[in-house]
């Protein structure tokens, strides 16, 4: 009975009692394009990244019964930095850790991602890498391209979130309630080169931005 293991029960309890109430009452989502959300793997959600809440918000869109299939890809140097954080990240959230500091071959670097995709899981990847400035999209990195370019059948679904950088920006511990937009695009079209991929994703984010109803002023 693999599905009945302790951590999976804890995960469902954590999402049912903490994450979902937090996301739907304290925050509140304006979700657009919910039908585009992949429910079958192998698939990759390519989302912009402004806050620790990003992962929790994306996972909360899924019913509790599908949670085990959703695997956020996250930096090993941060999330595995101490024992408790590592246990939580690996067992409750179910991250796939990436060693972004060490110089290793790409196939080795992404082996965890490939295994998960081979198991028909759904990955959450933040192609900007780090959280960056609140509510601004930083330069998109090419790591995601390297994961998918020789894989067939792996759908990439771009998702734009807006507002979470106001609720809980990088370096802040006080959560202030704000609504946030989650706009889910249809599956990305084919691309040839890494630059092509970056360009396509960038223009997709720009388009998704027009569906957002929450706003921030950028002048400070």
């Amino acid at each position: 009975m693999k599905w009945l293991n302790k951590n999976r029960v804890l995960k469902v309890i954590f999402f049912a009692l903490v994450v979902k109430p937090l996301v739907f009452i304290i925050l509140g989502l304006n979700v657009r394009g919910k039908n585009n959300l992949p429910t079958k793997g192998p698939a990759i959600i390519a989302a912009n990244h402004n806050s620790h809440l990003d992962t929790l918000v994306l996972m909360s869109l899924y019913p509790l019964s599908l949670l085990y299939k959703i695997r956020p890809v996250a930096a090993a140097d941060y999330f595995l930095s101490n024992k408790y954080r590592a246990w939580f990240a690996l067992n409750i959230i179910g991250i796939i850790p990436i060693e972004r500091q060490r110089r290793v071959r790409k196939t080795e670097l992404f082996s965890g991602c490939h295994t998960a995709l081979d198991n028909d899981e759904i990955l959450i990847i933040f192609p900007e890498g780090s959280r960056g400035q609140p509510e601004q999209i930083s330069r998109i990195k090419k790591g995601l391209y390297h994961i998918v370019h020789d894989r067939k059948k792996t759908a990439i679904i771009p998702v734009l979130m807006h507002g979470l950088g106001k609720a809980l920006p990088k370096g802040e511990a006080l959560l202030v309630p704000f609504n946030c937009d989650v706009v889910i695009a249809p599956e990305m079209a084919e691309f040839q080169t890494a630059d092509d991929f970056v360009k396509q994703l960038e223009s997709c984010y720009q388009e998704l931005k027009t569906y957002c109803i929450t706003t921030t002023e950028q002048h400070n």
Binding site: K166, C180, T215, T216
Partner: peptide
Amino acid sequence: KEFLSIVPGRQSDRR
């Protein structure tokens, strides 16, 4: 919450 989310505000006013 809804009002403060749709009206542009300054990041520094979170607190």
